[in-house]
């Protein structure tokens, strides 16, 4: 149920300002995005059309705390089919970043582990300029499990068989233990420091 006294009329403007969220107000609620979404086969209640309408109405808390925000595959089917060019895949990304900033300031608790994974991934690029799989996995599991030791235990449980399989095929080995690095790593640090909506 909508509680009109809790609506935030500025929420849509907040999204419109976020890179990727620029086309929010073009939505005319036709539901093409939801009908084509492959996730609805697995989660029948998954409904990007509804998330857009809730955003337009200003249901800020409900949208930002909706766990469905974090399962989008970014497969772009919705974006390709939208007759209004809302660019829904990017739009949901914009809303996810607003939610992440809310969490950083302590106003929201995100139950999904996806922000931790994305952050750990970005740290690898910031540090090395390329993806370092081992560094990503160690950082992600540490954050997800709450400590380095617990993280290592969970990681070896999840990835022991997989790791052996890849090792046997020569796809992981001693070389994978160390990061590949670009020479100019200073510019990587500068990109993450200077770019992004929150730095405006």
């Amino acid at each position: 149920m909508i509680k009109t006294w809790e609506l935030d009329p500025n929420f849509k403007y907040e999204i419109l300002k976020e890179p990727g969220g620029e086309h929010l107000t073009a939505c005319f609620q036709c539901s093409t995005c939801t009908l084509g979404c492959p996730l609805t086969e697995i989660i029948p209640t998954y409904n990007p059309r509804r998330m857009i309408q809730m955003s337009l109405l200003g249901m800020r808390n409900e949208v930002l705390s909706n766990p469905d925000l974090w399962v989008c595959l970014i497969c772009q089917t919705c974006t390709a089919r939208c007759p209004q060019d809302v660019q829904i895949a990017d739009l949901l990304g914009a809303i996810r970043r607003i939610a992440e900033r809310e969490e950083e300031t302590g106003k929201l608790k995100i139950s999904s582990v996806r922000p931790s994974f994305d952050k750990a991934f970005m740290h690898q690029i910031q540090k090395y300029g390329r993806l370092y799989d081992m560094g990503l996995a160690m950082e992600y599991y540490k954050v997800k499990e709450g400590s380095f030791i617990k993280g290592m235990m969970a990681m070896s449980k999840d990835y022991k068989k997989f790791g052996m399989r890849m090792f046997k095929k020569g796809k992981m080995g001693v070389k994978s233990m160390f990061p590949e690095k670009v020479k100019d790593r200073e510019v990587m640090r500068k990109i993450f420091e200077r770019m992004g909506a929150e730095k405006k």
Partner: peptide, 16 residues
């Protein structure tokens, strides 16, 4: 020469 990661799907901020 010295190419860097494209950002994959994990860097969600388009400007980065």
């Amino acid at each position: 020469e010295d190419w860097n990661c494209c950002g994959a799907s994990e860097v969600e901020d388009p400007e980065i």
